[in-house]
Amino acid sequence: MCFMCSVAYGVAGVSVLLGNSGAPLALATATQVKTISSQVQSLQDLPSVLGSMKVPNLEEPAWLKDQNAAEAAAKAAKSVPVVKVVTYDVTSKGAITANMAEFRSQANATLNDGRGWARLGVSFQEVASGGMFTLVMSEASQMPTFSSGCGTDYSCRAGRYVVINQDRWLGATPSWNNAGGSLRDYRHMVINHETGHWLGHEHEFCGGPGQPAPVMQQQSIDLQGCTFNAWPTASEMWSTQLGITKV
């Protein structure tokens, strides 16, 4: 009887009891195997960081805004060929405190602006005298001297006279100011409106709530649900005075 042999017999019995499972344990499931790869992939940060990235929204610099506006105005002016030159002379009535040089230059700029009546294919030219109409800067109290229909509150057109009320030129109207409109835009509007009468237009009405008011609407009195607008609309692009039907 040998010691080693006895132990070997005993332990061999144990090995049978333990099960000779040299094979490893079956622990994982197929789903878990798939999970580890997808779980690890989901730890990436780049997809979420780059996925939510936005291309910066650059605010247009001031110089570019100016350049673009100038180009747009030039383009608009060019798009309608000038077929007619309309001459006008400028005068004043009563005690005038407004700067007449500014009045002349701003009125001319408005009349020839690419957004205005120039779209009729008309070029407005100021002459010393004998123009086709007369643009007048009038003291408010002098307004009724042009026509009984002209009041001291607003500007007016009487025959060949396109009369701008000095008070309105200098201070627009409370409703315009309250709505945040600029004085320059009011001046555009009043020049366009009164010249519009000379071109043959009567008053217009608001086309529908929220729409820009026709320039021939009495915007200083009632907006009728429209928004302030200083420029003639597309439907106002005609003139009986100049014999121009719709542009």
């Binding site: 195997v33 690890v40 990436q44």
Partner: peptide
């Protein structure tokens, strides 16, 4: 820059495939 995540996903793919296979081997699957 946005396409960087695609570059990264391409590089990570073989690593996760190898990891998945090692996991299956270890836990006898």
């Amino acid at each position: 820059l946005g396409s960087l995540s695609t570059v990264s996903a391409g590089q990570l793919a073989p690593l996760t495939t190898a990891l998945q296979s090692a996991y299956a081997q270890l836990f006898s699957l």
